Computed example of a mutant assay.
Amino acid sequence: MNLNEFEQTIKKIFGTELLEEHDDYGFTNTSNDDIKKVGYATNLSLETVEQAIQQGVDLIVTHHDAWDFLYGLREACVKKMQEHNISHFWIHAPLDFVEFGTCTSLMEALEINTIKKYSSYNEEDGDFPGIGEYSNSLDFNLLREKMCSKLNEPVRAWKNNSKEVKRIGVLTGAGHSSAVIQKAVDEGCDTYITGEATLYAIQYAEFAGINLLVGSHTFTEIYGVKTLAQKIVELNPNVVVTELKETHFELNH
Score class of each variant (00 low, 15 high):
residue 76 A to C: 04
residue 97 F to L: 13
residue 55 Q to V: 03
residue 64 H to A: 00
residue 118 Y to K: 12
residue 97 F to M: 04
residue 133 E to F: 01
residue 193 I to E: 12
residue 245 K to H: 14
residue 99 E to Y: 08
residue 81 M to F: 03
residue 193 I to F: 07
residue 8 Q to T: 06
residue 190 D to F: 06
residue 24 D to T: 07
residue 95 L to A: 10
residue 107 M to G: 13
residue 158 W to L: 15
residue 182 Q to I: 07
residue 214 V to K: 00
residue 41 A to M: 00
residue 15 G to L: 08
residue 103 C to L: 01
residue 39 G to N: 05
residue 60 I to C: 02
residue 188 G to L: 10
residue 218 T to Y: 00
residue 177 S to Q: 14
residue 90 W to C: 03
residue 83 E to A: 14
residue 148 C to M: 14
residue 2 N to Q: 05
residue 112 I to H: 04
residue 39 G to M: 02
residue 240 V to P: 01
residue 135 S to Q: 13
residue 86 I to T: 09
residue 120 S to V: 01
residue 163 K to G: 00
residue 223 Y to M: 13
residue 183 K to T: 09
residue 114 T to F: 11
residue 56 G to W: 10
residue 10 I to A: 02
residue 181 I to W: 00
residue 232 I to F: 06
residue 225 V to H: 00
residue 70 L to M: 13
residue 156 R to Y: 14
residue 221 E to G: 07
residue 71 Y to W: 11
residue 1 M to E: 03
residue 105 S to Y: 07
residue 56 G to C: 13
residue 9 T to A: 11
residue 133 E to R: 05
residue 239 V to N: 10
residue 13 I to Y: 01
residue 23 D to W: 01
residue 102 T to W: 06
residue 155 V to Q: 04
residue 132 G to N: 05
residue 180 V to W: 04
residue 173 G to V: 08
residue 20 E to D: 11
residue 94 P to S: 09
residue 128 F to N: 08
residue 5 E to N: 15
residue 231 K to Y: 02
residue 93 A to K: 14
residue 41 A to E: 00
residue 164 E to A: 15
residue 170 V to T: 15
residue 212 L to H: 07
